[in-house]
Amino acid sequence: RAHSNPFSDHRLEYPRSPDDMNWEKLFPKFYDEESNSMTSSVEIADIGCGYGGLLTKLAPEFPEKLILGMEIRVQVTQYVEDRIIALRNKHENDEVNFQNISVLRGNAMKFLPNFFRKGQLSKMFFCFPDPHFKQRKHKARIITNTLLSEYAYVLREGGVVYTITDVEDLHKWMVKHLEEHPLFERLDEEWEKQDKCANIMYNSTEEGQKVTRNKGSKWIACYRRLPTPEDCV
């Protein structure tokens, strides 16, 4: 199934609050039994991670950072889970052992704040999101003015929202909403060129590779999380 309705009450598992999240299960090698706590927390999130291509490419770039993929489709999540297990087994004794990436099934549009604390994330990726072409369905798009406030909440100051799509209309939509949101500021092309994540995003996802094979266009837009206004808390 290519689509999933983000409004429906899927029977999802999600923690009551970030305090209740059991990260040990997803990142066992980053769990310290003596102190009974995680030695690192998730800092990079790939929202709608699809088949996990981006996760596997990011893994060696940020060996000390935890990277989480969120995916709403059950079978796709299962696939990525298996893929990560296989990678971890295969590279058990290697320097890059894929212990820092994981995936969970979830509805980020509804439950993101159940997983992440205020300012916990430094990077959020939105790669080839569902375009929801119909006007009526636009609220189902993953980038909207109102959802950007939630992304701004989980992102720290200076954190980056990465977007990429092969649908020009959706690109314009995402840019428009990010542009309008007072807590985001566009990063220019120069920045995109020198940023390794932007490059990885352009080349590594399964969707992205499909677009390249079909000689389609890809549009990127990256935005920095601005400081919270002084009169707000």
């Binding site: 205020k118 003015n145 701004a152 009169d231």
Partner: peptide
């Protein structure tokens, strides 16, 4: 400035 979320009450 409602676009600045303070917190959620869980």
């Amino acid at each position: 400035k409602a676009y600045v979320i303070k917190n959620w009450l869980f």
